[in-house]
């Protein structure tokens, strides 16, 4: 027998978590698919469930000097219409799933679900976004990239929940491409986000992320760092080497949506296109 908890506020939710190992459902758009059994039947939750979508205190978007703070129950619909949210992030959301799902789903939910095809993860990695995890006693902050440990594996302790996501401010130029199977409502075959800052002909920042080409987002700060500080013409000379480096670390798989060859080739095409457009 499993328990279902519908807390009235955050402190009640954290109380429950301190005593029960729960699935946490916000919009439900991931878990209700994963746990779906058959039409007319209950989902197959094998442990307790905590429903948080009604927690209004986690439904917020605000901005301070750390970045844009997005609450755990804030829906994509509201994120994409907020003036506080950077355009890059809105671009990513606009291609996510379907309108209904954007009306229901939350960013925290997608992160907690750690799907390898989760489009927003690429942006969160590239923007160095971090989470606030809270339990009854304390809060901690953790980078999204450190929080995600693998396919559907996350660094959440049973008594914790994600309460907000913080996207640091940035003035990056960006190159975003979701490669889906059709024009709308598609799960990524792969996605690519390149971002950079140049100033007076010098590369000041460079960030590159790939989605759906590995068990989780591929972003390698060590490679990126090697090219920060170069003059743009020096940088252009290095493009073949950069491509070679990523070529070594990108090893996608074949599944029902695409093939490993396609994913690899297109990832490299997009990388090259991005790199040659830096100016």
């Amino acid at each position: 027998m499993i328990n279902h908890f519908i807390p009235k506020n955050l402190s009640e939710a954290l109380d429950i978590l301190s005593n029960h190992d729960c699935y946490i459902i916000a919009g439900g758009t991931d878990l209700m698919v994963q746990k779906h059994r058959s039409s007319g039947l209950l989902p197959t939750f094998e442990k307790d469930v905590l429903y948080i979508s009604n927690l209004e205190e986690l439904n917020f978007i605000r901005s301070d000097d750390k970045g844009v703070h997005i609450g755990a129950t804030t829906k994509y619909r509201d994120i994409s219409s907020s003036e506080l949210v950077p355009q890059l992030f809105k671009d990513v959301i606009s291609e996510l799933a379907s309108p209904n799902i954007r009306n229901m789903a939350t960013l925290a939910g997608n992160i907690g679900n750690a799907s390898p095809a989760g489009d927003t993860l690429v942006a969160l990695y590239v923007l160095d976004a971090y989470l606030v995890l809270q339990n009854k006693e304390s809060k901690r902050e953790i980078l999204v990239k450190d929080f995600i440990k693998g396919v559907r594996k996350i660094d959440r302790k049973p008594d914790e929940m994600i309460t907000e996501i913080v996207i640091p401010h940035h003035d990056l130029h960006y190159y975003w491409k979701k490669v889906g199977s059709r024009a709308a409502e598609s799960i990524s075959k792969l996605s690519f986000l390149g971002a950079y800052i140049t100033k007076e002909g010098i590369i000041k920042d460079l960030r590159i992320g790939f989605g759906s080409v590995s068990i989780t987002v591929v972003r390698n700060r060590d490679i990126e760092k090697q090219y920060i500080g170069l003059k743009i013409d020096e940088f252009s000379q290095q493009i073949p080497e950069i491509i070679r480096k990523y070529d070594e670390i990108i090893n996608p798989i074949t599944d029902q949506r695409s093939t490993k060859d396609y994913r690899k080739k297109v990832a490299m095409n997009l990388l090259k296109d991005f790199l040659t457009k830096i100016k």
Partner: peptide, 13 residues
Amino acid sequence: NIPYDSCLTPIAN
């Protein structure tokens, strides 16, 4: 007043 997929919405929500 917002369109939802009722197949993904637990009644608790």
